[in-house]
């Protein structure tokens, strides 16, 4: 198991390297640069700016510099948020995104599993239809609709929660963003768990468990659900990475200082280092969570072994 984990981590290095290389050259192919404004900059000043940010060096040399800085943990200066380095921005933004994302993930997993399993046990009942209906609604309603509606209802009309803004200390500011982020995930997980639980309840090992006379609670909770979680777990890998690295929509609508917006702001502003930084972070999260998923798989499914 340990060897497997190490091997996977080692194989992640070339993956990240390829991602970095591709992104580095792709973003440079986009027309325009970080200092292009509606009003032109004098060529001389542009030259000074390019020199200050090492953009006048040949591309391959910039690439090597970037890689070498990256190895030292330096993501470089931001071109569009010039009072900050990319490290500064992530130091503030990443904890916020991780906090929101992991709470949303927790809500999604707990609520999705409970709803899905409940619907499966009561298949074709009112509960089942309600869960399936809710899940369809959750999947089809985009978060740029949900977020403003929640903000309007709970922030403006009822006045129970802040309509937007952020505080690291006051959980009242966290509620609406978490609900927005979790809602579609609850829906997907509920559907996945429902489907696989129905299947698991009919499988041989569950029938055997029942034949032993085990109580339904144990049969469903331990034997059926364990097998039924497998599809949901594989779905959770990329989802967790996505949730923990922030959401552009949710951050913009609620005014949250996470890192989700940096990806878009960076790309639109041709902030090369900021885009690269977000890509690196997202890549690492995706690789990490895929590894976690595979390990959880082995733990859940006795048939999977990585030795």
């Amino acid at each position: 198991m340990l060897i497997y984990t190490l091997r996977r981590l080692a194989s992640a290095v070339p993956t990240v390297f390829v991602i970095i290389t591709l992104t580095f050259f792709m973003i440079r192919m986009a027309p325009g640069g970080p200092f292009d404004l509606e009003r032109p900059i004098d060529p001389l000043i542009m030259a000074n700016l390019n020199r200050a940010y090492n953009l006048d060096a040949p591309l391959w040399s910039q690439y090597l510099t970037y890689l070498s800085n990256l190895l030292h943990g330096d993501l470089g200066p931001s071109f569009t948020k010039r009072d900050f380095s990319v490290n500064d921005l992530f130091a503030v933004g990443l904890p916020v995104s991780i906090l929101l994302g992991s709470l949303a993930l927790l809500v999604a997993v707990v609520l999705g599993t409970i709803l899905g399993a409940w619907a499966a046990i009561r298949q074709n009942s009112g509960v089942d239809y309600a869960v399936v209906g809710l899940a369809t609604f959750g999947i089809t309603t985009p978060n740029f609709v949900v977020a403003p509606l929640l903000s309007l209802l709970f922030g403006v009309v009822l006045g129970w929660l802040p309509a937007g803004g952020w505080s690291n200390a006051n959980p009242a500011y966290w509620v609406l963003p978490i609900v927005t982020l979790a809602l579609p995930q609850v829906a997907v997980i509920a559907r996945l768990v429902r489907g696989s639980t129905i299947e698991a309840l009919r499988s041989n090992h569950v029938r055997t468990a029942r034949a032993y006379g085990l109580p339904t609670r144990v049969v469903v909770g331990v034997h059926a659900l364990r097998a039924a979680m497998l599809p949901a777990v594989s779905y959770l890998g990329p989802t967790a990475a996505g949730l923990l690295t922030g959401s552009v929509v949710v951050e913009t609508i609620f005014g949250i200082p996470g890192i989700g917006r940096y990806f878009v702001q960076g790309a639109l502003g041709r902030d090369y280092t900021l885009v690269m930084g977000t890509v690196v972070v997202i890549a690492i999260f995706v690789i990490f969570f895929n590894l976690v998923v595979d390990l959880v798989y082995a733990w859940l499914d006795p048939r999977v072994r990585y030795d």
């Binding site: 403006v156 802040p162 309509a163 937007g164 803004g165 609508i253 005014g255």
Partner: peptide, 18 residues
């Protein structure tokens, strides 16, 4: 000073008195 790239967000928070 709060940045509002989404102007509707500012309107909502204005209406909420924030």
């Amino acid at each position: 000073w709060l940045p509002f790239e989404d102007r509707s967000a500012c309107l909502r928070r204005f209406e909420a008195g924030e």
